[in-house]
Design a protein around this nucleic acid. Structure first.
Length: 212
DNA sequence: TGCCAGGCCGGGT
DNA sequence: ACCCGGCATGGC
């Protein structure tokens, strides 16, 4: 069963904005780091932090780095003490369980991988799923605040829908395809930034306006 | 200038 | 099982 409305939304956004080619990042490891740093934070600020981290983008190097130094590097991304610790938490997990190897991690069964990531303090569902989809190319639909706002706005689901409820609707409503999951989420963020902000959720200029 | 950003956690109800 | 405050910098 595919949901035509979701397919329509995808097609409209894709035609309007074109491919987004996410995630912006030079390596899967950088994507993982970025996924943590971008929690409730403007991507522009994350870019600054990642620029600071560039010379040290290796799981072992970062794991062994003095916490105060790490804090100073991630500072521009905001919530810096919190995020430095969350990065450490993730790095411990990544090194202990997978020896800091993307390839090794990718061999794991998806459910196990997801459970493991979610057990890391500071990694919630969106961060976890972003890592799975964008760093590890796993077919997991990423739900975020924009996805929810736009979905409610277009009557795909109600305002009380949960993360996993929304995720299920998307995963069951469109073709299970990493490329589509990748682009769809990125397109929703793009559309959301332009038309579906917190204080003006009216989408007057949205390419989706006709659908409502 | 204030409001907001690609969340998550812990404590209170 | 929800709801809320805290976390913080920098862009527009």
């Amino acid at each position: 069963m595919t949901n035509n409305k979701l397919k329509d939304i995808y097609n409209i956004l894709y035609s309007h904005y074109g491919p987004q080619n996410w995630w912006p990042g030079d390596s899967p490891f950088e994507i993982m780091v970025g996924a943590i740093l971008t929690q409730n934070t403007n991507w522009k600020n994350v870019e600054k932090a990642i620029a600071n981290l560039k010379p040290y983008l290796d799981p072992f190097v970062l794991l062994n780095m003095d916490i105060d130094k790490l804090i100073s590097l991630v500072r521009p991304s905001g919530f810096y003490k919190l995020k430095a610790q969350r990065l450490k938490n993730f790095l411990s997990f990544f090194v202990e369980r997978y020896n800091g190897s993307i390839e090794e991690m990718k061999k794991t069964e998806l459910g196990t991988m997801r459970q493991g990531l979610l057990s890391v303090p500071g990694i919630g569902m969106e961060t976890c799923d972003s890592i799975l989809l964008y760093a590890l190319s796993k077919p997991v639909f990423v739900v975020d605040a924009y996805t929810k706002r736009i979905g409610v706005r277009h009557n795909i689901f109600g305002g009380n829908a949960t993360y996993e409820g929304i995720q299920k609707i998307f995963e069951e409503g469109i073709k299970k395809d990493v490329y589509i999951y990748n682009e769809f989420h990125a397109l929703l963020v793009k559309a959301g930034k332009e038309n579906c902000k917190k204080r003006k959720p009216l989408c007057k200029t949205s390419p989706l306006e006709d659908l409502v």
